[in-house]
């Protein structure tokens, strides 16, 4: 039977343990194959990593089988979870030595003039004005934790790591970041800066 012919939710819940084990092995192979394709260009992913990611993903998928709503193919839904598992782990390794103090200190630097180099601003007046308004808003509208979280995002720090460092919940961290972005956006709007102005200034 090919992966497209298997009724995965049924097979993975099978009361016959041999049938269930066969489905788990088959799904694990599908995940492993997909991860190999997706991560083939990375030099930091070994065969052992692929094995670990596939196994960990399988456990996550089994744990949240009830969340599959059938709005995509089961294997597509499962691959998305496997990729999330793999990338989360790879990002965590890159940032594992960063402390809360370092993140907060980095956030405080966000409003400093030197944080955005002159060559980034260039000679364009519209860019300079835009960044000046942004810096002002970062300094006066955000809390230290909001500055740290925004900086973490800018540095492409994994969201889970930001949550962990700030010692908060995922939902509280989401709200904190969303509130921060809304506050900054309102400051830009109050200064008469529109989305189009931003796109034009930075060629977005």
């Amino acid at each position: 039977m090919t992966p497209t012919e298997i009724n995965w939710p049924v097979a993975l819940r099978a009361t016959d343990t041999a049938e269930q084990a066969a489905a788990m092995r088959a799904l694990r192979d599908v995940l492993h194959h997909g991860l190999r394709i997706a991560l083939s260009s990375r030099g930091d992913v070994s065969e052992a990593h692929l094995e670990d990611f596939a196994q960990e993903s399988l456990l996550r998928i089994l744990d949240r089988l009830d969340q599959f709503q059938g709005r995509s193919k089961f294997t597509t839904w499962a691959q998305a979870i496997a990729l999330n598992t793999a990338f989360t782990e790879l990002r965590r390794k890159r940032w594992q030595d960063v402390s809360l103090d370092a993140l907060l200190a980095d956030g405080e630097r966000l409003a400093e003039p030197g944080m955005i180099a002159e060559d980034v601003l260039g000679a364009q007046e519209d860019r300079q004005r835009l960044v000046a308004v942004l810096r002002e808003a970062i300094e006066h509208q955000l809390t230290p934790k909001q500055r740290a979280a925004i900086m973490g995002e800018l540095r492409e720090m994994p969201f889970d790591q930001i949550v962990e460092l700030l010692g908060t919940s995922r939902s509280a961290a989401y709200k904190m970041l969303h509130d921060a972005r809304r506050a900054l956006k309102q400051s830009l709007q109050a200064a008469g800066i529109t989305g189009t102005d931003i796109q034009n200034a930075f060629n977005l």
Binding site: R94, W95, D97, V98, A102, L103, A105, D106, G114, M115, I116, A117, D119, V120, L130, V131, L134, I150, M151, E153, L154, R155, M157, H178, R181, R182, L184, K185, L188, G195, I198, Q199, A201, F202, N203, L204
Partner: peptide, 23 residues
């Protein structure tokens, strides 16, 4: 240099502004 010691790049400044435009 650790990631948190590096100044922001043009892309990062642009991406935070784009992020705000899309909020």
């Amino acid at each position: 240099m650790k990631p948190q010691d590096q100044p922001l790049t043009s892309e990062q400044v642009g991406s935070v502004l784009k992020m705000l435009a899309l909020t």
